Amino acid sequence: MKKDIPSYPLLIEATYDALKQLGGSGKNDEINQKAIEILKLTNNILDIMHIDTNLSEVYYRLAWARTCLKNYSAIANSARSVWSICPDYTTIDKVNGEDVYSYHRKKEMISAKEEIGGLSESDINNVDTLVPDVNLPEEVKGWKQHLYKILLEMNPYAFERLTQRLLRECGFSEVKVTKKSGDGGIDGIGKLKINGIFTFNIAFQCKRYRGNVNVSEIRDFRGSLTTDIEKALFITTGTFTQQAIEDACKSGKQQIDLMDGEEFINKLAELQLGVTEIKDYQINEEFFSKI
Rank of each mutant, 00 (worst) to 15 (best):
H50P: 05
I51A: 15
T53K: 07
T53S: 14
N54G: 09
S56I: 02
S56Y: 00
V58A: 05
Y60D: 02
R61S: 06
L62N: 06
L62K: 06
L62H: 01
A63S: 11
A63H: 05
W64I: 03
N71G: 12
Y72K: 09
Y72L: 07
Y72V: 01
I75W: 00
I75H: 04
N77P: 00
S78M: 03
A79C: 08
R80P: 01
S81I: 07
S81Y: 10
S84R: 03
S84N: 09
C86Q: 06
T90I: 15
T91R: 13
D93C: 08
K94S: 10
V95G: 01
N96D: 15
G97R: 05
G97T: 04
D99T: 13
Y101R: 04
S102I: 13
S102N: 10
Y103K: 02
Y103G: 00
H104S: 04
R105G: 08
R105E: 08
M109Y: 04
S111C: 11
S111Q: 15
E114A: 13
G117E: 09
S120T: 08
N126E: 15
D128T: 12
V131H: 07
V131D: 02
D133E: 11
V134G: 04
P137H: 00
P137F: 01
V140S: 06
K144G: 07
K144L: 14
Q145P: 06
H146P: 02
H146S: 13
K149R: 11
L151F: 05
L151C: 08
L152H: 04
Y157P: 07
Y157G: 14
R161I: 14
